[in-house]
């Protein structure tokens, strides 16, 4: 296990029910492992909540993280929990500023693992330039959880040019995907119990707020919609968009950008990459007049260097997503039915 920071000396190796009691053990755990590491003036006040000042229109989002296993190639539940909420705010057109952080820990979690998660949270928070200003820690009995669950909520200030609204989506708009797809889901699959296979696929979990803000700086209201295709993948997200706006969405299979290792793993397991989760990719629907310039802009940025045009919004196929295969045949894409991959985020 690679630790960024040496683990503090403690007289306990695993987290016990006492660490969630609110008493002395809780204080020791929080002081050493959480507040010390994620320190900022608001958190240090140790109030029951955070007192914040923010001007203008705000975005507010929350998400819970129950991924299994909690460590996976390229990341862990900690950075996933920060990036996930940061990205949800970014998809609203907001620059994330403050996050809450709550743990539900199953007793018996090794302290070393908790430490590694905290270190990832610290790094992810710093990278996304957000402060963790309030939080909570509970411990449940062995067998009543699965190592560690995390909830994060976040607040961000809306970009002044943002007009993210599904009702602004109109026929002719272009659908762009910001990077190669299906990395996160396949990274989790590669380490799932009973299915471990050798691969070099890493999660794509990363904060997308800064790239989204720079898009808004440059393209403003030409951007109709941002969405991040996490659970259920690109296909499910597009179906939700089509249903919400009542327009048709027409996409072409030949445009999809896939890493060969991801394509091979999907093929081997019989999974459709369009339904596999992403944690560092966004879908953007943009005015057709700006689409080429937008794509060029994205492809020059590291986080979105493999951005591709997937398709367009149309007045045909009302409320449906139609995929044209490489063979030029068409079929309807639907939302993911059931679970393709249990517990991926």
């Amino acid at each position: 296990m690679h630790l960024q920071c040496p683990i503090p000396k403690t007289d306990f190796d695993v987290i016990t029910l006492g660490h969630g009691s609110g008493g002395q053990l809780t204080s020791r755990l929080l002081d050493t492992f959480v507040i010390n590491q994620l320190s900022n003036p608001e958190l240090e006040k140790r109030l029951d909540g955070a007192i914040l000042q923010l001007d203008g229109n705000l975005a507010f989002s929350t998400d819970s993280y129950v991924v299994s296993p909690i460590f996976f190639p390229g990341g862990n539940i900690g950075d996933l929990a920060i990036n996930g909420t940061v990205n949800d705010l970014a998809m609203c057109g907001a620059l994330p500023k403050y996050l809450s952080l709550s743990f539900i820990i199953e007793e018996g979690l090794p302290v070393s693992e908790f430490w590694e998660v905290i270190q990832s949270i610290k790094q992810a928070a710093s990278k996304a330039n957000i402060s963790i200003v309030t939080g909570d820690t509970k411990v449940v009995e062995k067998g009543k959880g699965d190592k560690l669950f995390i909830n994060t909520s976040g607040i961000g200030r809306l970009h002044p040019k943002a007009q993210i609204d599904v009702n602004r989506v109109s026929a002719g708009d272009v659908i762009i995907v910001s990077n190669k797809i299906a990395h996160h889901g396949m990274a989790i699959m590669s380490v799932r119990e009973g299915l471990i296979f050798e691969s070099n696929i890493l999660t794509d979990s990363k904060p997308l707020a800064h790239v989204c803000m720079s898009c808004l700086d440059k393209f403003g209201d030409s951007i109709k919609l941002f969405r991040d295709p996490t659970r259920g993948g690109v296909a499910t997200t597009l179906t939700e968009i089509a249903e919400s706006c009542g327009k048709g969405i027409f996409i072409q299979e030949k445009n999809i950008s896939l890493d060969p290792s991801v394509e091979g793993a999907c093929e081997m397991l019989g999974l459709d990459p369009l339904y596999v989760a992403n944690e560092g990719v966004f879908i953007v629907i943009v005015d057709a007049l700006k689409a080429n310039e937008f794509l060029e802009f994205l492809s020059q940025k590291e986080e979105t260097s493999f951005a591709f045009k997937l398709g367009e919004v149309t007045d045909s196929y009302e409320g449906k997503v139609i995929l044209e295969s490489k063979m030029k045949g068409k079929r309807v894409l639907t939302k993911l039915i059931g679970d393709q991959l249990p517990r991926i985020c």
């Binding site: 459709d272 295969s325 063979m327 030029k328 045949g329 079929r331």
Partner: peptide, 9 residues
């Protein structure tokens, strides 16, 4: 046949 849209062509 369905996945590749062959029924349609």
């Amino acid at each position: 046949l369905v996945k590749h849209g062959l029924l349609d062509i």
